[in-house]
């Protein structure tokens, strides 16, 4: 009996995991750190052949309402789908594997994601495409490499036709109504536990849109500068042709958002043109969470408004 050739196949019954209860590590310590705090249902099947003493195997894993916790992207919940392995020993898969992710929260809650990928090995994958509905439009991640237990990856996200009205809701921006859509592509650097947005630029589509700000930031600003008061009056019913939103910072930490807004208000100075350079320094995550908290949050406004006197601008009061 020189070689033990033959085939074997292994199937699991549907396994149901609970945090604090039955966990994948009960099956094998080799998965520790990979599916931490696992929950939901998983079943797997593998077909092994031993040919000339050389083992190989194919198989699949299917999950339903599956979830786990990760250092890099936070909680992953509601995962459904089936992954085919063309080499179970190497844990590699053919291209085009697809799973749906109910919720993932790297700083901004993303729901109903569809992820297409290929597993290269236990530690490397190719993200083929990932798409989430978001703020009335879509966030789409293009093709990029992903290191499974890695410490740093960069993926490019395209924001497609995000509606300003929905963005105001997602970030619970108080006293603000807005209409119009913005789009743009930007890199997101996933480094350790942080997801950094690197100088994202979202620009309004060419129809432009409207903004109506009726908050109390106006009062504190207007005292400072009569032109600022003028500007805030304009912002109460503003029609913009140019809107550029820049975001830079840590999704789960501090974010700096700057906006360039150009347009006019029919009610102010017969529709004279205004340009706003608005800088918003905020903890994005706090904004999002403020909506979910029962207690109303009294926002601390620290507003600095100053008008930029253009070189040869004649202000309406004085004429030569």
């Amino acid at each position: 009996l020189d070689t033990l050739d033959g085939t074997a196949n292994v199937s699991t019954p549907p396994l149901v995991f609970q945090p604090g209860g039955f966990q994948p590590t009960a099956l094998s310590e080799r998965v520790r750190g990979f599916l931490s705090n696992a929950q939901g249902e998983l079943s797997a099947h593998a077909d092994f052949t031993i040919d000339g003493g050389k083992p190989s195997g194919t198989g699949w894993v299917s999950v339903s309402n599956f979830g786990f916790d990760t250092l890099r992207l936070g909680a992953v919940r509601g995962v459904n789908g089936r992954i085919e392995f063309d080499n179970v020993l190497k844990l590699s898969s053919p291209p085009g594997q697809e799973v749906r992710i109910g919720q993932i929260n790297p700083g901004i809650p993303l729901e109903n994601g569809l992820i297409a990928f290929q597993l290269i090995s236990a530690t490397e994958a190719i993200l083929e495409r990932a798409q989430w509905p978001f703020a009335g439009g879509h966030l789409v991640a293009g093709r990029s490499d992903w290191t499974i237990a890695g410490t740093r990856d960069v993926i490019r996200i395209s924001a497609e036709a995000l509606s300003l009205t929905s963005l105001v809701d997602v970030f619970n921006l108080p006293d603000l109504k807005a209409e119009g859509t913005v789009s743009g592509t930007f890199p997101v650097e996933i480094a350790g536990p942080n997801a950094y947005i690197r100088d994202a630029v979202l620009t309004a589509d060419d129809q432009g849109g409207t903004i109506a700000y009726t908050g109390k930031a106006a009062e504190s600003a207007s005292k400072a500068d009569s032109r600022a008061e003028l500007a805030f009056n304009a912002l109460r019913d503003f029609r913009f042709s140019v809107l550029e939103i820049r975001a830079d910072g840590n999704l789960s930490g501090d974010m700096l958002i700057t906006m360039k807004l150009a347009g006019y208000s029919p009610a102010v100075l017969q529709g004279a043109p205004f340009v706003f350079n608005i800088g918003v320094d905020s903890k994005l995550m706090q904004l999002i969470r403020s909506g979910q908290r029962a207690t109303g949050t009294d926002w601390l406004y620290d507003v600095v408004a100053e008008s930029v006197a253009a070189r040869n601008q004649t202000t309406p009061e004085n004429t030569e």
Partner: peptide, 21 residues
């Protein structure tokens, strides 16, 4: 570390702060 991040996310949500804080 995966479990610590989950615990930080939860506490940040309860206290209206950020995970990083």
């Amino acid at each position: 570390n995966n479990k610590r991040r989950a615990a930080y996310d939860k506490l940040a949500e309860q206290t209206g702060t950020t995970t990083e804080q």
